[in-house]
Nucleic acid binder design. Structure first.
Length: 716
DNA sequence: CATACAGACATAAAC
DNA sequence: TGTCTGTATG
């Protein structure tokens, strides 16, 4: 194969990155600048030109989708199968490492992975067993604490209570949680990474082995890495390997999930002499869209600095629509969609983006009325569905009787007469004897401490699991699954469901198909079932099956990252909604919101529509919105305001800012006193001068809108 | 033990 | 306002 195909289609900086000599390299790749292309061509270059054995490279992504895409594109370019390449997600690769070295990592050979749902259940049960009230200590908070510590690489022993009783309790819970996981042979997502990191950090032989093996380590979306992922990379790269990382600080939108943008700077410090390549030429959007995006992101102070440009056309101005309310906003968007579709555009070329999921409903209703097919991203994914998780719990219990969360999940599904009291007795025994629920159940039955009926029901359950194990031990994986879902009564149980029975049974059938199509790793010594169960957690499946028909795409700004559409609607641009109230309090949060806006704008190829609603019904109450500051950050000459024919209100960018509107000393959050209504807090404000109005929540009189000129509010 | 109702809650989400 | 969870009830 000739080198031309690898190098020819690249621009200068792309080529520089792809053909870079073997030294640490940081590629700052702007939106739409060919980031994936650079990674794919770099790998092709290393193999074809540098003669690197595929065995000796490691490529890491965040999502299975990205990993699959990379694989596919490498195969297309190299005409070469990639099954044996180490390309995968951080979690997938960590999992692989732990399976290979489970002894050294201190894990059971058949350890299983818990998803966040399983994790939360486990935390709930832990709190209950300690008789800690959920109102006093929210399970979510405990879960969040544990995950945050793991993301930072900290074990309970590394934590200091700092004379804080609440913190001390959290640390204690973290310790107990770890014990439960270890006993049940369970590993959560954070644990996969942390364990893998500790394995490399503490075991010199293994570390040396992988450092020597992986000459090149490539990382995608580097701005999304957390502390452990970074340490992991550093351990793996060692002195002899070459890290090649690609990222964009302007697209870092996952700080709340543990991501550390600082890792980009840290990389330059930890690998002195690292080459830095900037990809700034954009192949996606019009000049107008890029100028707008550049202008918005320029308001951020913490940046490495980058400016997107294009050789393409200027394109249409960005259209701005000020809707009366959220229904009007949706109607406007749907009318534009109808126009585009009538004009010959495919529906899946149109995307409606919003800040929070709750906003989708109004658009869905409007699209439904207009008879336009749409697809909403997000929501329940395949392997997260209750019927699927129940089926998997049976399989997990068959594989490992000590898997307490699975035991609890299915001990009475379908209902077999094992009630809450019976389960409580089993838990009690497990706590007393310090064993798993499975063993405790057997002990409770033997001790004859239960009513005969309960005892029998429990006995039936234990027998069922043993029987399923015996009956399926020698079957192929798909037959194993098929037998379990039928003989356990799960299919019959879900089939009875009047509302969703049909689809639930279909899903269970789908699980059997998935098992049928599952290719277990030939090198692995583990039973295929164990591998399949891990696969099910790590690859939790798409939200929805592939579109049957061409449909409009509805999703949050977060889930739009990495995608592109000819036409993009960014909706709900109101202060408090976008930027979101809960992120706008500190500058770091606000900057992340701004990056989110940047991500939204740069999704569009040809045309962007921005909308906001002057009034929005949210959680049952009306809110009067102020246009998002992000609108004002776009240069006016790039914007064109679309007004309904009857409109009378002023154009948004000439509208006085909130501060001017309330220059009389009344600010949001300000305490004020009114002659008649008493004291209250200013919630909202709009208009200016003689028309300026504020919304005040009075302690006694409730929420009221008042015209400042008349109300004679006293600032407190 | 299934269903009905009351009350809490509501940013984003990959593995 | 809608959804989800936990509890009360037949």
């Amino acid at each position: 194969m000739d080198v031309t195909a690898i190098v020819e289609p690249l621009n200068e900086p792309q080529r520089e990155a792809v053909t870079a000599p073997a030294r640490p390299t940081l590629v700052l790749a702007g939106a739409g600048s060919g980031k994936t292309r650079v990674l794919v061509h770099r790998i092709a270059w290393l193999i074809r030109v540098e003669g690197l054995s595929p065995q000796r490279l490691l490529a890491v992504t965040f999502t299975n989708k990205a990993a699959a895409e990379m694989r596919q594109r490498i195969e297309a370019l190299l005409e070469f199968p990639t099954q044996h390449f180490w390309i995968g997600t951080f979690h997938g690769l960590a999992h692989r490492l732990l399976r290979i070295h489970c002894d050294e990592a201190g894990l059971h050979a058949g350890f299983q992975i818990m998803d966040s749902d399983d994790q939360l259940r486990l935390v709930r049960r832990l709190l209950k067993s300690l008789e800690i009230d959920e109102n006093e200590r929210a399970p979510k908070e405990v879960q969040w604490f544990i995950n945050a510590q793991k993301d930072d690489g900290l074990r309970p022993a590394n934590l200091d209570a700092e004379d804080n009783a609440g913190r001390a309790q959290l640390i204690d819970l973290y310790g107990r949680y770890e014990k439960i996981c270890a006993d049940a042979g369970l590993v959560d997502f954070g644990e996969l990474l942390l364990r893998a990191k500790e394995l490399l950090a503490h075991n010199e032989a293994i570390r040396a082995q992988y450092q020597a093996r992986f000459q090149h380590v490539l990382v995608d979306e580097f701005q999304d890495t957390n502390a452990i992922q970074y340490d992991w990379l550093k351990l793996l790269a060692g002195r002899s390997s070459t890290p090649f990382v690609v990222g964009d600080d302007d697209q870092s939108i996952y700080r709340w999930r543990g991501a550390r943008v600082e890792n980009l700077q840290k990389f330059q410090r930890d690998f002195p002499g690292a080459a830095v390549v900037r990809l700034e030429q954009n192949y996606r959007s019009t000049g107008t869209i890029l100028n707008a995006a550049n202008a918005v992101i320029a308001h951020n102070s913490e940046r490495l600095g980058k400016n997107l440009w294009t050789e393409g056309e200027t394109g249409e101005p960005i259209k701005l629509y000020a809707a009366f309310n959220e229904r009007d906003e949706a109607e406007f968007v749907v009318n534009r969609i109808v126009d585009f579709v009538t004009g010959g555009m495919r529906r899946d070329e149109l995307a409606v983006l919003y800040r929070s999921n709750a906003q989708s409903r109004v658009f869905e209703e409007a699209l439904l009325i207009a008879g336009i097919p749409y697809r909403v991203y997000g929501g329940m994914r395949f392997f997260e569905r209750a019927e699927i998780k129940d089926a998997l719990a049976y399989l997990r219990l068959i594989a490992n009787r000590d898997d307490d969360p699975s035991f609890e999940r299915i001990v009475n599904v379908p209902t077999r007469g094992v009630g809450a009291r019976t389960v409580e007795a089993v838990r009690e025994e497990a706590r007393r004897a310090g064993t798993s629920l499975w063993r405790a159940a057997a002990a409770v039955i033997t001790a004859e401490r239960l009513a005969k009926r309960s005892s029998n029901a429990l006995w039936q359950f234990l027998r069922l699991i043993d029987q399923l194990d015996e009956a399926t031990g020698s079957l192929a994986l798909d037959m194993q699954v098929k037998h379990v879902v039928n003989a356990s009564g799960l299919v019959a149980h879900y089939g009875k469901d009047k509302l969703a029975g049909e689809s639930r049974v279909e899903n269970i059938q789908e699980l059997i198909s998935a098992a049928q199509g599952f290719l277990a790793d030939a090198e692995s010594a583990l039973p295929p079932l164990i591998e399949f169960l891990s696969y099910a957690v790590l690859e939790s499946g798409d939200t929805q099956a592939e579109d049957y028909e061409d449909s409009v795409q509805l999703m949050t700004l977060h889930s739009a990252k990495g995608l592109e559409f000819p036409v993009v609607f960014v909706c709900g641009l109101e202060d408090g909604l976008f930027p979101h109230q809960r992120s706008a309090t500190d500058s770091a949060g606000l900057e992340e919101e701004r990056r989110l806006c940047y991500v939204g704008l740069t999704r569009a190829r040809q045309q962007v529509f921005l909308t906001y609603a002057e009034q929005r019904r949210l959680y049952g109450t009306d809110n009067f919105g102020v246009p998002s500051r992000f609108i004002r950050e776009i240069p006016q000459e790039l914007l064109e305001e679309v007004r309904p024919a009857m409109a009378v209100s002023r154009p948004v960018y000439r509208r006085e800012s909130l501060q001017e509107a309330t220059s009389s000393g009344v600010r949001l959050g300000q305490r004020v006193r009114h002659g008649k209504f008493g004291e209250g807090i200013v919630l909202n404000a709009e208009g200016s001068g003689a028309h300026a109005r504020v919304q005040v929540n009075f302690e006694r009189a409730g929420t009221k809108w008042l015209v400042l000129a008349y109300a004679k509010l006293e600032v407190m």
